[in-house]
């Protein structure tokens, strides 16, 4: 009970004192464990919109945008250009902190939820996140093709996605949003940002986070390969020799 009260208090802080709505969110799990049979996972974030007694009804209804961001990593986008008869990587654009996994879920089309200026300010949607000025280092060249290329390639690899029907309202004030964790998800901390809007204005925000970790054999091997790398290498070398020898015994014809 105390924990729930504390959570509510925290949610109040996030929503700010001037606003009438409070947003309470909960993830279906705090950890995604990777074992030998891992091929991706699904998490669900649930949310309840709590209203105090005096607040007026929202005639436009509620809109929710959920953004899940994986561990950040630096990415260089290179572009092939003709150089004589061949095509070579000739220009590049560096992005400092790109979420390895990025999922944007919304209750309806982002264009209907908020005007372009607000979408850009709140970073709602893949385009708005990548178009943010601080997302890359300005080098005085036209970097828009590189930003678009980054979205295209990350989406093709199944690491980034955007679903404009991904948040489902079960009742008027209770919603859920299923989030897919890709098979090639990077190990580390993932954070989920939930923004509640109505009529193009922000009412409340919520945050949650979970981690993707290796467990069991997968974790032990990773730790062993890092901490005892020479022994690990010799072990694999010995293993390879043994396999080769066994095969030659099995297939011996004489």
């Amino acid at each position: 009970m105390r924990a729930r009260l504390a959570l509510l208090a925290l949610a109040c802080l996030w929503s700010g004192p001037a606003l009438a709505e409070r947003l309470v969110t909960s993830l279906s799990a705090n950890q995604v464990a990777i074992g030998s049979n891992y091929t991706g996972a699904q998490l669900v974030i649930f949310g309840i919109i709590e209203r105090d007694g005096q607040s007026a009804d929202r005639p436009d209804g509620y809109d929710v945008v959920v953004t899940m961001r994986g561990p950040r990593e630096p990415v260089t986008v290179r572009r092939k250009e003709p150089f004589g008869p061949v095509w070579l990587n000739r220009s590049q654009q560096k992005f400092v902190a790109v979420p390895s996994v990025l999922t944007v879920l919304s209750s309806r089309y982002l264009a209907e939820i908020a005007p372009p200026a607000l979408r850009a300010q709140l970073r709602l949607g893949l385009a708005a996140i990548v178009q943010a000025p601080e997302f890359t280092i300005d080098r005085g060249q036209d970097d828009n093709p590189f930003r678009a290329g980054l979205i295209r390639l990350k989406t093709r690899d199944g690491l980034w996605s955007q679903h404009e029907r991904g948040v489902v309202f079960v009742t008027r004030e209770f919603f859920r949003a299923p989030m897919a964790i890709p098979a090639t998800a990077t190990i580390g901390n993932y954070d989920v940002e939930v923004i509640l809007l109505s009529g193009g204005a922000v009412l409340a925000r919520g945050h949650a986070s979970f981690e993707v970790v290796k467990t069991g054999f997968e974790e032990q091997i990773t730790v062993f390969a890092q901490d005892r790398s020479l022994i690990y290498g010799m072990m694999i070398g010995a293993l390879s020799l043994a396999f080769g020898w066994v095969a030659s015994v099995i297939f011996r014809r004489d």
């Binding site: 990415v75 260089t76 986008v77 290179r78 092939k80 095509w87 990587n89 590189f146 290329g149 390639l153």
Partner: peptide
């Protein structure tokens, strides 16, 4: 690979 116009001229490179 280098002589034909690539379908996707962009590529991602991690550190």
């Amino acid at each position: 690979e280098i002589a034909v116009r690539p379908a996707e001229p962009f590529s991602l490179h991690l550190p």
